[in-house]
Design a protein around this nucleic acid. Structure first.
Lengths: 229, 229
DNA sequence: CCCATTTATATTGCATCCAATTTTCTGTTG
DNA sequence: CAACAGAAAATTGGATGCAATATAAATGGG
């Protein structure tokens, strides 16, 4: 159907993935020509992708001074998690009112994939952990809610990348499993409690070093040129 | 200090204002050339602005087929108001926990301005009505919450433009006043009740015609070339 | 030797140009 | 006259080039 991916779409997707998997760390400069060179496209396409990433809050663009992977402050981190608790509570409430028939199955199979990726210590595990929460939002059926949850989850990844331990998988998988159990029983209170605890655990994981950023954009990005997954 | 507005910033701001004040109605095509001509810039800048507006959900870009002011469906409209209730409840809860010292004053003076604009039947009144809710978010001090509320408020304007009466001011000013009163008393329950009622009233206002879009982008936009206000 | 000033380099903002795609117009045919 | 096929016009996606700004390096003075 719409196999219509423009070049800037591809770059947008690749950069996004690289950032979410913490290959591009917060603060890393993203010069337009470096990106263009890496992906063999013009600055125009790179620029377009950067603008969109900036709208997502993943990249910060300063006028005349270029783009860099966003560096959320601790203050912003707190805002993100506060809002995230608000939004994820909404998700849970809706799911406990109406859970799609094959919703639980989808969640379970996602957690399975998380486990696999974690055992293989693949960088995918970082992204998959976040995508569990996006899957939850998808089960509500609200496009907008999916969009908003995606935004806070993305920013959380960035926060973990900035303040968390080396390659901290964002979420504890066992807590995901507990949450699924509560949702299966349509127990909104329990689910909310688990979710709050879960998010606090994630937030607490963001209290350590502040490792500096590395260069070599080209080298890193070359691994992200291919399609998704 | 940062008097650093790029051309595409100016276009972004102008288009945004034009859309929020319902001068550009949902569905209106936004060809890059026309925009560039109107503002005397190249397509490049126009394009950049359109991309950002698309991230805001105010404009819909279809690959190879151009941009148009977004036309939210009734389904999307419900999603917007549902999420908006969730977010505005959060705002109220936070404000009742901690309201800035001059917060109430700011709200009152804003409502005054709304009243003035309404009497002058200025198109500003449409925008100001929405900005009341953004001001509420600003009082919480959370950048992110401001951002998210702005998004849902913007989309609400679009929904009103599409489904509401001719130039329905989005909000009832008296309800704004009631809300301020409840906030002054730090009465979260009352404030939430008023807000819910208020948003339902706004949502109900979105149930009428589906007036078609008008052409003449250049003519409309020429009134939006100047700076803000 | 350190710091300010100037020069050079790198990078962005933007206009213009071209190829690819879509949309509109036109003429033909059943 | 409706429907279709093809050509022409309009419009987008993207590449390149240039001026403006920012960053780095070099130069000179204290």
């Amino acid at each position: 159907m719409s196999t219509n991916l423009t070049r800037s779409d591809a770059i947008y997707a690749s950069l996004r993935r690289a950032i979410l998997e913490q290959a591009l760390k917060p603060g890393t400069k993203l010069p337009e020509d470096s990106i263009g060179d890496t992906f063999s496209v013009s600055r125009t396409s790179a620029r377009n992708a950067l603008v969109r990433l900036s709208s997502d809050g993943l990249v910060e663009i300063k006028p005349n001074r270029g783009a860099a992977v966003a560096m959320p402050t601790l203050e912003e981190a707190e805002e993100v998690f506060a809002l995230r608790r608000c939004l994820e509570r909404e998700v849970i409430e809706r799911l406990c009112k109406r859970m799609p028939k094959d919703g639980i199955d989808a969640l379970i199979s996602h957690v399975r994939e998380e486990e696999r990726a974690l055992q293989a210590s693949s960088p995918r595990s970082i992204r998959l952990a976040g995508e569990f929460h996006i899957l939850l939002a998808e089960l509500t059926g609200s496009k907008l809610l999916i969009d908003f949850i995606s935004q806070v989850v993305s920013r959380s990844s960035l926060i973990l990348a900035r303040f968390g331990r080396p390659h901290s998988a964002e979420c504890g998988i066992d807590e995901h499993i507990q949450l699924i159990e509560a949702l299966k029983n349509l127990d909104a209170d329990a689910a909310t409690r688990i979710m709050d605890h879960h998010l606090h655990a994630v937030e607490d994981r963001a209290k350590v070093d502040d490792k500096d950023d590395g260069p070599d954009i080209s080298e890193i990005l070359s691994r992200y040129m291919s399609a998704s997954e």
